[in-house]
Design a protein around this nucleic acid. Structure first.
Lengths: 215, 215
DNA sequence: TCATAATCCGAGTAATCGCTCGGTTTTACT
DNA sequence: AGTAAAACCGAGCGATTACTCGGATTATGA
């Protein structure tokens, strides 16, 4: 069940917890500075200020350290992005969606260097589990928004449109943070993104949506 | 100017052209089978049926071989996807966009294993130049469609919407090919994708678009 | 205090792998 | 046929690096 990347042993005492954290943080720093390709366990240990032996006390192999870095990033990440969400139900769907997009964008921007390093070189086997997990959450959010829109939108392609919605938001924000085109302003794109997405799940007009998806 | 990944020497005789191709093809096969992480130059040469010395006759280093694989993939790729485009002007914008999306999807599907291998592990420094190049072409297409739509759509955020459009199509098709969710049918998603994109650049209704992009 | 477990250490090992280089074989050309 | 250039060969060098292991050090708890 559990991935092979899991730490082989978790720290039990305070001192070892510091060691563990130092290793993970050093790994993150090196990932940002030199990329996955130049990452070595000896280097990680050196930067962390611990011995190579200690590193292998907690991590089965090199990728387990990277995995932990990615895991922490994704975790802190989804916490930031999920914060505005409890408002769902108290505010309109429109507000909820918009603030979700804004929060996600802010969360990504604040971790830009690490995100860039991870997206650039880290093998998919390491990234995938976390990307999958957050995507599942986003999909749930999209479906909820869809349901709340009631019969203002077509209900026969909920899965398909949710998929497109999540894909669009994720990809657009990622590209906006990591590789922004120089002839657009990020803020305007984010605004436009919100508008386009809202048109899908919570259109302004009272009119029923177009009758059919056929060409 | 030119990247360091360029082949150090191009084959001049027929025999060497075969050698060159065999190396590139072997690299592609190994990339698909074992991934970038397990790729070795000795292994490439062995599978190609040539000596390691011959490999370094044409390629400055390992990544130059991978670069050539990616280059060829992206090239054959954009040829397939661009084939339906000359029709622009002879057919409606709607038809052009739809057939572009369909062609792109087909082109990606037919190269699925290689695309998966490249997306999974190949460092961004190698992928980026080609992704950038095709993205520029797609953006040009989006702008053209936008312009042809005339005043049926707002003209003050052409760049922003084009960016979103290209991002959506690229990301959705990629995910659909490499990591299709199991509760949607790819064909339906592609159809829905076309519909959504067409709504942006060539809406059905004659009515003017909504007046403002503000929330 | 003392035994036991947890933690830490880092020199060393074994294996890998990118790449070179001196030399042979093949092709092109006159 | 003769020659020069192009192509090919592959053993092996040099460097890197993931990971081990036997032992030192520190914490726990009875």
């Amino acid at each position: 069940m559990s991935s092979d990347f899991q730490p082989k042993k978790l720290p039990r005492q305070a001192r070892s917890r510091q060691t563990f954290d130092a290793i993970v943080e050093a790994c993150a720093r090196l990932l940002i500075a030199d990329g996955y390709g130049a990452l070595t366990t000896n280097h990680i240990a050196e930067v962390a200020g611990v011995s190579i032996g200690s590193l292998y006390e907690y991590f089965g192999d090199k990728d387990a350290v990277v995995y932990e870095v990615v895991r922490r990033t994704a975790h802190g990440f989804s916490e930031d992005a999920a914060r505005p969400l409890p408002a769902f139900g108290r505010v309109s769907v429109r507000t909820a969606i918009t603030s979700w997009i804004d929060a996600l964008f802010a969360a990504m921007r604040s971790r830009e260097p690490l995100l860039r390093a991870i997206a650039a070189d880290v093998p998919q086997t390491i990234r995938e589990p976390h990307e999958r997990e957050s995507r599942v959450r986003y999909l749930e959010l999209a479906r909820t928004a869809y349901r709340m829109a009631g019969d203002h939108v077509r209900q026969d392609r909920v899965e398909e449109v949710s998929f497109l919605l999540v894909t669009l938001v994720e990809a657009a924000l990622t590209r906006l943070v990591l590789d922004p085109p120089d002839d657009v302003s990020p803020a305007v794109v984010v605004d436009e993104l919100s508008c386009r997405v809202l048109e899908w799940v919570a259109p302004r007009s009272r009119a029923r949506p177009r009758p059919s998806g056929s060409r």
